[in-house]
Design a protein around this nucleic acid. Structure first.
Lengths: 213, 213, 213, 213
DNA sequence: CATTAAGCGAGACGGTACGTCTCGTCTTATC
DNA sequence: GATAAGACGAGACGTACCGTCTCGCTTAATG
């Protein structure tokens, strides 16, 4: 959030009221029907107070969701590491599935997705402040697994992260199927199988079951 | 598209002009700034002619993109089947990567994504008319590979489709990396490895070092 | 009413239905909210059938009111002449007052007034087909009174007609007072007094105290 | 004009621009083709600024004409009183005739007439703010003439006002004749004759010329 | 401790687009 | 070939918000 005016005198109460109002409203009407005047009115705030501190409704929403998700202090974001990679990832994926399935998370997250698809700058900020830290946390956990010999050292970690997490994100976005713990488990098993058997010399057509093609 | 009026007298010329205008405009200004008045004006058409036949700008856009993608006759959509699964999928994934990377496809597709995230009904129609047929074509190709012994018979085909295609879709949506043919190849290799080694006894309880790493 | 198409094939039933519908509707919604589509719809008639035979909604209304007032055959319009001028005029003025006071006449007449103020051509047609014949009938009665010695021969008959009838028309238009038989009587008495005393030598230069009081 | 919003912050410049634009436009296109968008556009004003302060185009026009006629301060409106009733009235009637005959007055006044016939509320406001004060001024002049013995004390002043002024108004409205100074003079003479000879004992049929009926 | 300058709630303003309504024309099928 | 039906291009309607711009009022930091 770039803020031009002297932030010193900024009213913390107004800021909180605006973020709350934005979060509530987006849950009620969706991103398309979210409006600055409605936010201002619900927050009991003048429109100018919003325009003074945020450049767009997307930016307000982005901050509102961030504050709700991690509180106001910037988050560390790390994955559990008990030594058992599959168990740790299962914990994370199951939790993610349940979160995405709950309306309280689903509605604002869809709104945020729209905001980012429509606004490149917002997407960039999200990438830097949320996605990349999260992805690094995931990479870190996989790196730890590589060090423990649970994954091949040759694995491209970004590919690995996508293999594990992308299917669920895609299923959520397109609503192409239910987001259950069972789904999380099957997903994880399939992905990990692929990653474990990955290697620089593993070309096509040499799996254990390969038939007479 | 639900249409209440007597479709018999409908002007084919106006319909085509509207769909063209919508497609062009969304490429120029994006979904958020796409407006019915602008479409009507560019198409040389009265606004009412749009409202008479489509319920929302999202619906117009959806139909515009469909007509552009498959022509007006409903599409069959099938994947190549040369007998070599990996080669066939590589062909498809590489083509998809190049398409998604090109602005002519990227802009309207992002617009369509926004439209569907904002409008559940539109998403449902997309699911039925586009996504499910496409997914079935993918399943069919994998089923053929199962019959040829190239993939385990126990494989859940929906999971398999997601494992192969979701990572690229996600990378496109979030712009988290470049969409190249190399990326397509690595993606495919990783996914296929996982799928080939999949089996009913390969559960989560394998030891960490079991792969040939 | 200018009518270009071959009037031969014209549907009498449609014409009557249109005029009825126009008359009813103008009584319900007023001239401003009277519309061609509403007339056509209520008459069970295509819009084109109206546009084919009338140039404007005002023209339809004009004809509708004429037909209602005098039937379809063009009217003769004459005033009673019993020999007693004041009694005859009282009869006419009282009847006029009661008519103007009744909503069934008031609403359409106001609509017609608006139509004529807004459309010069319509006003002209009204002048020729309604107003001038009516005025001539009034002049005729006054002329008869002149011949009977009840009114000075020097009287300008148009001035006389206005003196008798204009005040009531004005009171109706501006709703500046009630239209009762008493009002009609007082009006008539005042006007006739003026007319009877009118003469070429009764100029503006009479002294102030000349009245009988 | 009823005004709901906080009139304090109202822009005087916008108000003036709107009233000017309305006045100009009604002179160019007439009341029927006068539109809010055209007024707003010519005034360089947002439509909402009109809707915020006036309930209808008729109300805008009414205020526009009032401001043009009397300026913004509410008018006193009184008739000359030189002691010579006929001369005073002649002055007024001649001036009125010339005004009504001039297009600059005629066009807007016809528009106002339509507005009032179509909108009862507007007519009421006109009655209270314009017509009744004007009529009272006329009554006052006649009352003065009664005190001077120039008119019978028994005269009903409202009837008298109508007798003098209604014929010209009616001729203007129906364009049934030219509005000249000569017409004004003849009109006045006829009306005053009637009024001067009016009295409680003057029943019908006793004018000076009464023939053998 | 006043002064003063900023942030603030409020909301009027010039605009743009909405979705609806009706205009007058044009087209199609029916009788 | 006139008609009922109604789609069409056009454009005004009145509403909803946009983002900007004053207004007074409150409130914290400075002189």
């Amino acid at each position: 959030m770039s803020r031009q005016p002297t932030a010193a005198r900024r009213s913390a109460a107004s800021r909180a009221a605006i973020l709350n109002a934005a979060f509530e409203l987006v849950g009620e009407v969706g991103y398309g029907r979210l409006g600055i005047e409605a936010i201002a009115s619900r927050a009991g705030v003048g429109k100018q107070t919003i325009y003074r501190w945020w450049p767009s409704k997307g930016a307000v929403l982005f901050e509102a969701i961030l504050v709700r998700s991690f509180g106001d202090g910037e988050e560390p974001a790390s994955l559990p590491d008990t030594g058992d990679l599959e168990a740790d990832l299962r914990t994370v994926l199951r939790a993610t599935a349940l979160e995405l399935a709950s309306p309280e998370v689903d509605r604002p997250l869809r709104a945020l997705t729209v905001a980012m698809v429509e606004d490149e700058a917002l997407a960039e900020e999200h990438r830097v402040r949320v996605e990349e830290p999260t992805r690094e946390a995931k990479r870190a956990r996989l790196r730890s697994a590589q060090r423990a010999g649970q994954l091949p050292a040759s694995l491209d970690l970004d590919i690995a992260v996508d293999a594990i997490f992308a299917p669920m994100a895609q299923r959520w976005l397109t609503r192409s199927g239910p987001l259950t713990e069972e789904y999380a488990d099957v997903l994880l098993e399939t992905a990990l199988n692929g990653l474990r058997h990955h290697g620089p010399n593993q070309g096509p057509n040499q799996g254990p079951n390969q038939g007479p093609n």
